[in-house]
Design a protein around this nucleic acid. Sequence first.
RNA 1: CGGGGUAUGGCGCAGUCUGGUAGCGCAUCUGCUUUGGGAGCAGAGGGUCGUAGGUUCGAAUCCUGCUGCCCCGACCA
Length: 567
Amino acid sequence: MKATSFHISTSKETPNDAEIISHQLMLRAGMIRRLAAGLYSWMPVGLRVARKVERIVREEMDRSGAVELIMPAVQPAELWQESGRWEKYGPELLRLHDRHERPYCVGPTHEEVITDIARRELRSYRQLPVNFYQIQTKFRDEIRPRFGVMRAREFVMKDAYSFHLNEESLVEMFDHMHNTYCKIFDRIGLQYRPVDADSGSIGGARSREFMVIADSGEDGIAFSTEGDYAANVEKAEAISEATRSEPEKNMERVATPNVHTMQEVSDLLGMQLNEGVKTLVVKGAEEPVVGLVLRGDHELNAIKAEHLDAVQAPLEFADEADIRKAIGCGPGSIGPVGLKVPCIVDHAALALSDFSSGANEDGYHYVGVNWGRDLPEPVVADIRNVVEGDPSPKGAGTLKIQRGIEVGHIFQLGTTYSEPMQATMLDENGKAQVMHMGCYGIGITRIVAAAIEQNHDDKGIIWPLSIAPFEVAINPIHMHKSTEVEAAARSLYEELLDAGMDVLFDDRQARPGVMFAEMELLGIPHRLVVSDKGLAKGELEYKGRSDEQAQQISREDVVAFLRDKMA
RNA sequence: CGGGGUAUGGCGCAGUCUGGUAGCGCAUCUGCUUUGGGAGCAGAGGGUCGUAGGUUCGAAUCCUGCUGCCCCGACCA
């Protein structure tokens, strides 16, 4: 590609509404342009990257035996009513009507459509297993789109759906896709980690997320210092603490006027955060409210809490009026002793002795509280987020926590969709069986942003070779003044094209400083400089994007040299 | 949805408090000079100051409504 016939549009200034580095650099490099909240145009440079990601995903999916198809973006409401998600999905589902006032939605995902296809197309177990995939634009009406294409409303996803005679076959495919995903992220060149995950609104039994490690990630991931245990913090199991010690103190009621937060209470009582419990009040499934008791320094895990039968899903905190009505005091003074509503206690809180808690009376707390003695042994559950240093749930090692960006997610759906939508086929005995399903997603456009989060410096993007918009940039110095430089640059360009390389020839007559700065901002992995000085010696200058120093190479050996660099 | 902020040329901003000819930097265009790290000089083009209404002799500026955008949103018991 010649720069004069391409469209490069870079900026020295950082747009003020871009928070994270990938968003800033994508705008500065002219990869994307915002149209409206969460809606972006992919400009030529950006599209080249997205297409390379797609190509790798497509090649590996094809190699895995999956078959590509493409389904409509707009889907009839009936299908979603059949699966039950028309009601369940909520405002993230963009709903619309056609001219006949028939209801439709813009697909945020395609389980319904593919299940409809499967029940029409797949009649015999002999056709299974089969794995269909597509690379297609999705729309999710996010509450708060942000971070550019990282959390956009419209985005490109690779989604795959597999169908099976039985669960064994599904598990086999799940493991196969797990491997395929590892190959994909290895090929792209990302530092990532597969983790256990909650399956969320998609439903189903087991799921794994593929996380790109980055401090700006929206998810926490917990992993063991020993062994291969890794899980999303949403899902990571906080295992029971050591048994508690014997009571030494008597329970006492103390005045704690005008203190509300756990930190204030602890400071006033001269205790550590982890020597008391806090009680959060949420809406119950049957009772109006339910108390959740945690050790003072721990955080509630909303996902775990809403999986509890007693707790309303989705999780919602009780407001102050509800709390006063049910408990008789305001938030800030609630505790499990004498609590008039059902309560569930986290393992770590249960392991405390002589602890502090709210007294269910405004302005008072208890100290020296002990389970079993001062109040009955409670219902216990894992309802907290794991923290660094927690023991690994799989035995050896302790947990560490990193931030990650979710770029892939694979699920064992089982019969979550096939059952309500009656997707059946005949088994070897001629009996109708409900098909088992798996589904497998990769955020194509999010990978682009995630790759930048992981690979950049103060000059700009540093693309992994596999997804760079161009592999090599040719920067001629004073080409418009030197016919030698021009001729050499043009023949170099042709030679590299013939060698199958993806070349950007900067034939714009720009000053050297401008060319260098732009090529670095764009993150092109390899740079060749053609100058009179070098040509006199039969040399070109080479610099890798993250090299400290440029080096002189022989003009003759350039293709071999680059091939070696790209290997 | 709740809270906060913001809206002035393509981008980044000043001007608003204290009403009186709409400005700066980047970008763009022309010319000359320059040429190995986002050039210099000279000139040019481009803005109904988000929108609707109000106050006033006069509104980017004061008042009211609306809209867009950005940020934050149990972590507290």
